[in-house]
Design a binder for these strands. Structure first.
Lengths: 328, 328
DNA sequence: CCCGAGCCTGACAACGTTGTCCAGGCTCTA
DNA sequence: TAGAGCCTGGACAACGTTGTCAGGCTCGGG
């Protein structure tokens, strides 16, 4: 900028004015400055600008895994909102590791992002207290924050799972299996709770062998599914606690002789093209992301003050696999 | 930092030393400083640090659409490499709009990212010349840069498509359709070239009605597919130019009475579970991302100087849909 | 002709950090 | 005991920008 000023034969501040489109510059002077800018290939250094102004016009997004198809659309909709507010998006994956989450979040705070959208991996977020006090807007997504009072946007995991399981019960099933992630993960716990509630509503006692928790890698999901299909009290339907589980269960069911019903939590691509189509409890990732991001920017506006918990509804999409009667 | 120094009763520079783990501080002093830091909830302001040091420890990634399943793994692997080098990832979607691409890239440059990974939307990148001269490391991915000399990492689109079409020909097909994106997009053009080459290799003249270019939205892909299936010279096989086309073509073929063979470019999830399984020419998005990011950091090391074009091989995965004989 | 208002313009400080350099106190050795 | 050398700690400038403020110029009216 100094160089531009020198070349144009004007003061520093005048260049600054031109760069920022501020008023109070003669067209003639502006032309000279613009010329110098072009000649030197000058571009404003936003780091210095940030340092001076205090706002970075960027927000951080910490999620579990960018490669997961659930987070792609979510990330995209957050970006879209950020863009509408002239902000850039910095994101990182925690890989479901609380320590890595904290490391990422603090790195983002050191960059002085204006706000944070966090899909929590850990369950204690007190480390964020100083940041919140310092005015970093924060919205948690998909799972609530631990031990701090903050905005959170999530799906109705409990209601969705309960509805999905009730759907199976309505089609005559009583022996229904549940395969889900570790209950220390909030979504997994809520979905399990929904499963239990639906079973209880129908007066069906749940056998321990019907539930498989903390199972996530394909090999173990496969074993879990096979076990509950061939065990002493074999299930006639399975409720899959997330999209990765659903995919593996589909593979297992395809190999079975008898027809086993399936409802999965989270939609999966091409679910309608499979034989049978896969019935799912779908959450709208894009909507979740948009809602969270909009709330974030309202915090930044100062429009918002009190942390709130926003639960978005899920939608049962019937495609065939959840509508088989039990085949005992 | 000033406050911390005051509270600990030491000089500014001493606090800086503690924060950065530099040597030359008594354990006792260090303890006092650390205490003050904790008490005040101090966190270093990276903007100021960047301003001083010149390096931001962050890289920018500009892609087409984060929600596209091809870019999730790519983005993730770039992030992984960045993380290994202690850098954060800032990313944005161009939505295939050259103007938006440029806007994003320049915004990232203004942030003084150390490097850029760009999946180009436009075909003229001369606007990047001043940045390159200023030392911003840059790697293009998936498509080459326009009018500038820069590193590029991409799949062997030509060879992959040629191989895929040859596979269909080997199974007896002669009337093979091609549905792809606008040829102004490099990948689309290359794949079309591969299709033509394979047909020519086999001495098969291509009818104009077998090719549909610049078609991307599902409704038009559907019409294009139906047209070439029912036209005067109906095809017995279709080569789909990208994953979105493939998905729509699968839907159309599912409705057909006769069996039509299909090979798609890009793998799609659950392709093996469909009936029939979908034969594809797969590219390894994660590998592409990793290769590009590693090259970027080698540019930053100074290890690398001459721009290079790196072409990664594709892999034909046979699952059934590409192995039908022609059904005339 | 003088004065005040209004418009451009530029000098300067400040944002928070780090590199450079120097001072003061200590230890060790001859 | 004196001198050399090391270790710790601090003062200061600089990074590139923007907010503040004041100076100089022009123009119109009295």
């Amino acid at each position: 900028m100094k160089d531009v000023a020198a070349r144009a034969g004007v003061g520093l501040k005048t260049v600054s004015r031109v760069v920022n489109g501020e008023p109070g510059v003669t067209p003639e002077t502006e032309r000279r400055v613009q010329e110098a800018i072009d000649a030197l290939g000058f571009r404003r250094n936003d780091s210095a600008r940030v340092l001076r102004k205090g706002r970075t016009a960027s927000i951080g997004l910490v999620l579990e895994d960018l490669a997961d198809p659930f987070y792609g659309p979510l990330s995209r909709s957050v970006e879209e909102v950020a863009r509408a507010h002239g902000a850039l998006l910095i994101n990182g994956s925690s890989a479901e590791d609380p320590e890595r989450e904290q490391e990422l979040v603090l790195a983002l705070c050191a960059r002085r992002v204006d706000g944070l959208v966090v899909i929590p991996a850990g369950d204690d977020h007190r480390y964020l207290e100083p940041e919140l006090k310092a005015g970093v807007a924060t919205v948690f997504v998909d799972r609530p924050a631990g031990h701090i009072d903050a905005d959170v946007v999530l799906s109705d995991n409990y209601g969705g799972a309960r509805g999905g399981v009730a759907h199976l019960i309505a089609h005559g099933h009583r022996r229904i299996g549940f395969i889900g992630d570790m209950p220390r993960i909030h979504t997994a716990a809520e979905r399990l709770r929904g499963y239990r509630a639906a079973m209880e509503d129908a007066g069906i006692p749940v056998a321990g062998s019907w539930m498989s928790l903390g199972v996530t890698d394909p090999e173990r999901v496969r074993r879990a599914a096979e076990d509950m299909l061939t065990g002493p009290d074999p299930v006639t339907a399975i409720f899959a606690g997330n999209n990765r589980v659903t995919v593996t269960v589909i593979r297992v069911l395809a190999e079975q002789a008898r027809r086993v019903a399936l409802v999965g939590f989270d939609d999966i691509e091409l679910a309608d093209l499979l034989q049978p189509g896969v019935t799912v409890v779908a959450q709208d990732a894009a909507d979740i992301g948009r809602t969270a991001a909009e709330r974030l920017f309202r915090q930044l506006d100062g429009t918002l003050v009190n942390p709130e918990r926003i639960e978005l509804p899920t939608r049962l999409i019937t495609r065939g696999s959840g509508e088989f009667p039990p085949a005992d």
